[in-house]
Design a protein around this nucleic acid. Structure first.
Lengths: 227, 227
DNA sequence: TAGATTGTTAATCGATTAACAATC
DNA sequence: TAGATTGTTAATCGATTAACAATC
């Protein structure tokens, strides 16, 4: 079931946002929501909302809106929030620890089965329930459990090396928090969580703003937006 | 100085990536780089690279490429990596602590002057050099130091409340790590670092992949890419 | 019925890719 | 000069916004 539905990248990134808003609405006891209201809460245009939702469900009722419970379930299904995705995380530094211990992920279907680090002081310990293991054991565990998703939170210098190990062991998707662009073979997907790039858009905006003020000009705040 | 150059959002996000690659190249002792090589290392198309760079500098030399040192300096200037941007961070949980302690940010011009938390157990302490203060002191500090950038790493439930306090005190840009969409008045910029949305693209790709395999189909891996 | 809101098509916008004359 | 690579224009692509008949 499900089939292979191709969906625009941008739409895909907005779906979890809708889901969160709907959850909130359910908690508030609402039953139906219009694309306008949903858009306001999620921060997107109402036409955008309708278009996005139609990729996965055409159950909206003209004049009434979308039945929140049904739509939320539909989204959960589509996003695979009911299945879990197993993952390994490499790099038990501050960021790695924060991510491994983040309780919110389980609600999004992510299951980090083990954390790896090359520091022997750290290995053997745990982050919550998750064991910290030596990097030497990484390939074996990936293969044994058939894990497809790797999360990288090591320093930039070691990120490529870890990537190579992961890929060789069969990892197909990498969530990269290290500030480098990873080289991977065809067929492996990298998603860069590039904090420097985000920061750049913010400080650029602030600088524009103060320049505009100096000169008494107005600045449209649409210059940059969240993802 | 510099004037108000308007630059496409996407381009702006790629500039820090170029900068990092160039730094790396300098360390390797390279002197010139072509748009092709830079593109390969950064993960973008060569035409894209040329177009992006031309927004900020037209010093490339046909047949030779870009002088790395000059281009890097130019980027640093444009991105304001030499000036620092002061910021406050609210939420001294794991993620907040990780971000506040992340040494990489100083290289990108970010200066977190104080961390705030409402847990009295935490306030009074420090993360590295940065003091942890009670949230009650937030508005006063923002005003006194004229801070324009706020970083939010509190749980979703309190994020809007903190946002309101920040905005009232004069914050103009917010870097939001909480999994909610913040409501802000016109003129305030929010950049959402939405980990759930990122995760969604990755697990969607993995699911597509395994479905395709079941059916013996091929799947183009361009479905999603890093930001 | 009158009012609201959907699903969808068409129009607009912005960003990426291709192509190529200019030039080191 | 011959080869490489730029800056830039034109062509393509994808995503957003506007508009509106269909319908609850």
């Amino acid at each position: 079931m499900g089939g292979i539905i191709s969906i625009p990248k941008r739409t895909l990134e907005r779906l979890p946002v809708y889901y969160r808003v709907l959850t909130q609405c359910l908690a508030e006891g609402m039953e139906y929501i219009s694309s306008g209201e949903l858009g306001d809460r999620a921060g997107f245009d109402n036409a955008q909302v309708r278009k996005d939702l139609n990729h996965i469900w055409s159950g909206g009722r003209p004049g009434l809106g979308y039945e929140i419970a049904k739509l939320a379930e539909c989204l959960a299904d589509f996003l695979g929030l009911n299945n879990t995705t197993d993952a390994v995380l490499v790099g038990a530094g501050r960021l790695g620890t924060a991510l491994a211990g983040y309780p919110g992920f389980s609600g999004y279907g992510l299951n980090i089965v083990a954390v790896f680090d090359c520091d022997p002081e750290k290995t053997g310990g745990r982050i919550g329930d998750i064991p910290i293991m030596p990097v030497a054991k990484l390939p074996d565990l990936i293969r044994r459990l058939g894990i497809k998703l790797g999360i990288i939170t090591v320093p930039g210098e070691s990120a490529q090396e870890i990537t190579d190990v992961m890929v060789a062991a069969g990892i197909l998707a990498i969530w990269n928090f290290a500030p480098v662009r990873l080289q991977v073979p065809e067929g492996v997907l990298v998603r860069n969580e590039d904090l420097a790039a985000s920061l750049a858009t913010l400080s650029y905006y602030l600088r524009q703003h103060s320049l505009a003020k100096e000169k008494g000009q107005t600045l449209d705040s649409t210059a940059a937006e969240g993802n």
